[in-house]
Nucleic acid binder design. Structure first.
Length: 275
DNA sequence: GTGCAGGTCAGCT
DNA sequence: AGCTGACCTGCA
């Protein structure tokens, strides 16, 4: 992956494996906005604006080191795509979402975000998360994601007022089950036992656990199965299987590239409905 | 008005 | 273990 790091920006020259629209709209992240031709992204307390130039994408930011890791710029996605291209079912999705990259996201933010994502739509998920940021905008810098300690100071009613609905009680509970440090410490666990730990948390089922494993812990060997993947599976493979069966089949199929395959398939499948 | 959105949980067999 | 229904709420 060809890119260059400056004091206040990164320049990514390989547009075949870096496309901000594909990266941000493929469902892995909620802390972004489209602004005319540009995208802004604001994970944790960081901020970047991505601007397209003729020969590159510029990532304008005060923290280039952070976003170098966030966008996983050191990883060669052409290599990953070569591995995946042998699967017939991925042929079109790889072409369609050619610039997708899996982001390296903060564990706590990913946990909270995907608990909120359950049985919800992206627009409302973003609305709720922005409400949470807004509630702490005086103590934090602009648009920072609140810490576990900050959210711990709030009662269940606070989360209801933020629009979380019935997920308010999950959030209230999960904050009392785990904190940032414990989540970090889980990194040493193997994927299977880590998944069990996560599923024990309030509001975290198999699907949300897999999202946290993939987007937070960077485990490529999981395959989050949601309504879109289910739809795709029933279309392409055998219909009438439950989520766990689908998950087992697909992870066996794609192995350590499961997470990557999932993102391309999800993005492609959802494109038929959008707009 | 109706139905849905990147599911989870409790309660049942 | 495996299955089923209830569930907040903004938006089309």
């Amino acid at each position: 992956m060809i890119y260059k790091k400056f004091e206040n920006k990164l320049e990514v020259y390989d547009k075949s494996q870096f496309n901000p629209e594909h990266i941000l709209e493929c469902g892995q992240v909620f802390c972004y906005e489209k602004q005319e031709d540009d995208y802004v992204v604001f994970p944790e307390d960081k901020f970047a604006k991505i601007v397209e130039q003729e020969n590159c994408y510029q990532i304008l930011t005060e923290t280039p080191d952070y976003f170098e890791n966030y966008f996983d710029l050191k990883t060669d996605y052409n290599q990953i795509k070569r591995e995946l291209s042998s699967f017939e079912i991925l042929k079109k999705p790889l072409k369609y979402g050619y610039g997708i990259r899996i982001l390296k996201q903060n564990l706590f933010e990913t946990l909270i975000s995907f608990i909120i994502s359950a049985n919800n739509n992206i627009k409302r998920i973003k609305l709720i998360l922005n409400n949470l940021r807004k509630a702490f905008e005086n103590e934090n810098k602009r648009k920072s994601f609140p810490s576990c300690a900050q959210l711990l100071s709030k009662d269940e009613q606070f989360f209801k007022m933020a629009g979380c609905g019935y997920r308010a009680s999950y959030l209230y509970k999960v904050l009392r089950q785990i904190d940032e440090k414990t989540l970090e410490n889980y990194q040493i666990l193997d994927t299977k036992s880590l998944r069990e730990k996560l599923i024990n948390l309030a509001g975290v089922g198999p699907k949300v656990a897999d999202c946290i494993l993939l987007f937070g812990y960077g485990r490529g060997d999981v395959f989050p199965v949601d309504t879109w993947i289910k739809q795709m599976y029933n279309q392409f493979y055998q219909p009438l299987e439950n989520r766990e069966q689908i998950r087992n089949f697909l992870t066996a199929q794609f192995g350590k590239f499961s997470g990557f395959a999932q993102q391309y398939l999800f993005y492609y499948q959802r494109s038929f409905i959008k707009k």
